[in-house]
Amino acid sequence: MSALDNTARADGSEGSYNFAYLDEQTKRMIRRAILKAIAVPGYQVPFASREMPMPYGWGTGGVQVTAAILGSDDVLKVIDQGSDDTTNAVSIRAFFEKTANVATTTHTAEATIIQTRHRIPERQLEEGQILVYQVPIPEPLRFLEPRETETRKMHALEEYGLMHVKLYEDIARHGHIATTYAYPVKVDGRYVMDPSPTPKFDNPKMHDMAALQLFGAGREKRIYAVPPYTRVESLDFEDHPFQVQRFDKPCALCAAEDVYLDEVILDDRGGRMFVCSDTDHCEERRTAGHRGEMAGEEIAARLSAGHASDGEDGQ
């Protein structure tokens, strides 16, 4: 394309990328798919997914969606399982810093676009924010029916009995619905949709969310969307209503309750701790003075007892 971005590096060290890597024709194609996805909430729109400079499975779908919507005045946050500082999040954030020269942040409240792998931030999202999900398998019926021609027909006819059979079999076998992530939802009473492998803990946040939710599946070449303030219901039964995970203890670092916790193994003698999966949320709470039982000040104080202690900061 002739429309090379003028923010490309003047020193030529990396050559010149178009703004946000993708060429303009590709962006237009993705943008058109996004508009259809918004118009038919929960329907998976096929798109001509491109090869990206990262392998499939690393969020190429989410990256393409982000690249197509991103502007020079956006502030981007990228999380992987709730964390801003794991490999996938760091490399995608660096990718857009390099190719689009956009501002990035780890603070949920500051971000205009949040690309996520498998979590929804704990902080309630606001109008005008956009949440971009990386999706590995967009088709919720795929493990029940491998043929695309058949699943497409099932969506067309709104024939979702098979999904309810699957959830029923969970109950027959385990006594409860044992699906804990990628828990199927119905969007605006019509399409059954895969929320991507987020824990079902996050499903209620999708309902009536003020932010726009966009989903990109690069390998499977699908884009789908949930507009703001849209009904999103987790499938269930009257006698087995949908329930989210509960944790016995609060976060060991910030004492937060009602958040999703990750288990961290501490040693080989069964020692472990549960901490917020949303690192930004946890850090903000600790900055605000919340302390969990393993926040570390005591240990740090003990470790530095022999030295001249020059601060309370144990982090």
Binding site: I34, L212, P227
Partner: peptide, 19 residues
Amino acid sequence: DPVHDAQRAFRAIMTAMSR
């Protein structure tokens, strides 16, 4: 500015469609 003008216009269109 084809790149950034189109991006700004698209965001307006996308917001219009989603609201």
